[in-house]
Amino acid sequence: MGLIESTGLPGDPAVVSHASPNWVTTRLDFLMNWARKNSLWPMPFGTACCAIEFMATAASRYDLARFGMERQSFSPRQADVLICAGRLPFKLAPVIRRIWDQMPQPKWAISMGACASSGGIFDNYAMVQGIDTIIPVDVYVPGCPPRPEGLMYGILLLQKKIQGESVTDGALRADRPVRPDGLFLPAERVDELSEPFGNSVHQTRSA
């Protein structure tokens, strides 16, 4: 069965989620994704040094606007992509979660830098060990901090990812709320993701 049998607006995942891809949906995908990926409005969530590099990326020399990111959206309600630039302390975890929940679909997230992606060098009591334990992340940009070229490469990867999305995939745009147990991921996953690595295992107790 195809799009013909559904009556709602095109692009509504509830309407077309059980449709299999066909000529109409793939053309529609192409058009929608092309529009979406070239008009990403970032919600900058800059908490630390990475945000400085983000600002450099957005400023004239690197000019993020070339990628359709002309407008930095400082309201989550008018944003498409959350860019977490910097470390996230536990105290800010409910804040980024609330911002994420306030962003309307379709939305994506970029985790910029080592801290946002893994806690970085801050393997301590105060720091979230990777924002993917709080919100879903689409692209991780490594580096401490990543250079503007690195962030732009991450954005290009995100655009590539968006170009591959399909309206027939209903799960894609489903919201992923905090579970009833109060976590975004199962507890074992959070613990596993937050495992110390590298030298930090030697630092768990003060000598």
């Binding site: 536990f90 301590n124 979230v128 334990t133 109060g182 976590l183 507890a187 074992e188 959070v190 003060s206």
Partner: peptide
């Protein structure tokens, strides 16, 4: 000094309390 660097609770518990 008797406070462990990563805190007393597991990461999952810390995340749960934070969220």
């Amino acid at each position: 000094k008797d406070f462990p660097l990563r805190g007393h609770f597991s990461r999952a518990e810390q995340t749960r309390q934070a969220l």
